[in-house]
């Protein structure tokens, strides 16, 4: 009954593609209104929950507007036999996208990039000496990509690590910022990211006031970078507080 469809015919999606859209001239002006009506320096409301996946040692689900991410942490577990002995632990990260994460099916190809950036962001925060010879695996799945994916993945991953009981120096919060002409826009959505001139992403540990990762692309003048960094660090501080309250709720709720 099932015919052998060995080569699927070429298909196209009927919806209009966003690449043809030219960026509206108001974007760089001072009266740019963001698509979701936020202020220029206002982040999206965050919904965070731990314990999303039962089979994992620790897991978290994060929803920032339209960006939805699930992260599971497995471990510490035995390292692969091929790896050499090491007296500190190892971290293994992997980020993947679902095929319906982007409006056009099967478009996301930045999985490998994001995996190595996630690794670098979390490495500085985990106390690797607490689990020698073993590996902690952090796997992320982006269910829906609505802009500013990597910061959401990083924040969600640090929540999942805390849920798994891995020892951290501090939780890690991450925020990104886009430069659209004169405007600095925090926590951009995918539409804004497609018009951007430059971007800046900061991952920091709020209580220790230390930055674990900073990524800058595009053209920035020095005063702009200072301004952007200050805004991002403030936003990370606020996000850190939200994450802490989420963790506290998760612990206190079952005790009631």
């Amino acid at each position: 009954m099932a015919g052998k469809i060995s080569n699927t015919p070429a298909t196209y999606t009927p919806s209009p593609t966003s690449q043809n859209k030219k960026r509206p001239s108001t974007v760089t002006g001072s009266d740019w209104v963001r698509p979701d009506g936020r202020g220029l320096h206002q982040c999206r409301p965050a919904f965070l929950r731990t314990g999303a996946v039962n089979s994992a040692s620790g897991s978290a689900y994060a929803e920032f507007g339209n960006t939805k991410v699930i992260v599971s942490v497995f471990g510490p577990r035995e390292s692969k036999k091929a790896m050499m002995y090491s007296d500190i632990g190892r971290l293994n990260c992997n980020v993947s996208y679902t095929s319906f994460a982007t409006p056009i099916r099967g478009q996301a190809s930045e999985g490998k990039d994001l995996s190595s950036m996630l690794h670098k962001a979390l490495e500085g925060a985990i106390i690797l000496e607490s689990f020698p010879k073993t590996t902690v695996d952090v796997f992320a799945l982006v269910l829906e990509s609505g802009g500013s994916d990597l910061p959401v993945v990083i924040s969600c991953a640090s929540l999942a690590l805390s849920d798994a009981g891995i020892r951290l120096y501090d939780i890690v919060a991450s925020v990104s910022m886009s430069c659209l002409g004169k405007n600095l826009v925090i926590d951009p959505v995918s539409e804004e990211e497609s018009y951007q001139d430059g971007s800046l992403m900061i991952t920091c540990m709020p209580s220790r006031n230390e930055v674990t990762q900073m990524t800058v692309t595009g053209e920035w003048s020095t005063p702009k970078i200072h301004e952007a960094m200050q805004l991002c660090l403030d936003a990370c501080w606020k996000l850190g507080k939200i994450m802490r309250s989420c963790l506290k709720e998760a612990v206190s709720a079952p005790e009631e």
């Binding site: 089979s55 994992a56 699930i70 992997n94 695996d137 796997f139």
Partner: peptide
């Protein structure tokens, strides 16, 4: 079956 779902699945 993405790697998040079970400890037996590897990327």
């Amino acid at each position: 079956m993405p790697p998040i779902c079970s400890p037996l699945v590897r990327p």
